[in-house]
Amino acid sequence: MFAGTLVYAIVNSFTLILLAIGFNLTFGISGVANFAYGALYVLSAYLSWMMMNLLGLPFFPSVILSILATTLFGALMYRLVLLRVRGQALSEVIATFGIGLSILELFRYLGFVGFEYTLPVFFDHSFIIAGTYIDMQRISIVVLGFLLVVLLWLFTHHTSTGLAFRGIAQDERTALTFGIDSDWIATLSVSLGAGLAAIAATIIIPLGSISPSEGYDVLIKALAVCIIGGLGSTGGVIAAGFFIGFAERFTDTYFGSHWTMIVSLIAILIVLVIKPSGLFGQQKELEERI
C-alpha cells in the first residue's frame, strides 16, 4: 500500500505542478494574479472537445489549435482589459475573476455539463509499477510535467526573452531603462500563462471530465501551490507541488479521503504562519532588508 501511495503521490504532485506553473509564471513576471486561470484551463478543454466532436477534427490538431487559441485569448485579455487597470492589483484580480466567471458560467448556461465532455487519453495502456496499476496518461503527466519545468527553466535562464522576463520580474522601471518594453513582456507573460493552463488541461482532463466547476477547483489548487511555494518562485511551485501532492495522497490512504481538503488547507495555514511569504518567497524578506 505504501509503494502504491508513493507512486500516486508523485503523479498527484506533478499534476499540481502542471496546474500551478502557468499561474506562477504570469504572476512572477508581471505581478498579474490571473484569476481567469481556471476558466482558461476549462475553456481550452471545451475548445478541444468542440473541435473534435462538433467539427470532427483529429485529436492532435484539435488540442494544438485550442492551446494556441487559449494563448491568443490570454494576450487579448491583457491588451484589451488588463492594460487599462495595470498596476492596480485589486482591479486586476476583479477583472480577471470577472472574465473567468463569465467564461465558466457561460458554459454552464449553454449546458456543457456531463460525463461525455472529456478528452481522450494519449495512449490507452497501463502497466504495473511497484505492484501498482498505473496508466500511460498518469505517466505522461509526470514526464510532461518534468519536461515543461525543465523547458521553462531553460527559457528563463538561457534566452534573451527569458532574461527580459526576469528583468521585468525584478523591477519594471529598471527593465524600462534597459530598453525592455514592459507592456509587451507582460502581455507575453499572461498569454504564456494561459497557454500553460491549456497544456495542463490537455494532459490532465483525460483522467476526469470537463465541467465549469473544474475551473474553480483548478484556480484554488493553483493558488494554494503558488502561495505555499512563494508567489512567483518556480522552485517554490515544485517544492509546494510535492508537499501538497504527498500530503493529499498519504492522507487519502491512511486517514480517509474526507480529510484530504482539510490537510492541504492546514498545510497552507502552517506554512503561512511560519513563513508568510511562502517556502521560497523572498519578497517580504528583501523588502525588510532595505
Partner: peptide, 13 residues
C-alpha cells in the same frame, strides 16, 4: 521609456 534608452539616454535610480 524603453525607446528613449535606444537614443542613448541612460539613468540610475
Amino acid at each position: 521609456a524603453h525607446k528613449i534608452i535606444q537614443l542613448g539616454i541612460a539613468r540610475t535610480f
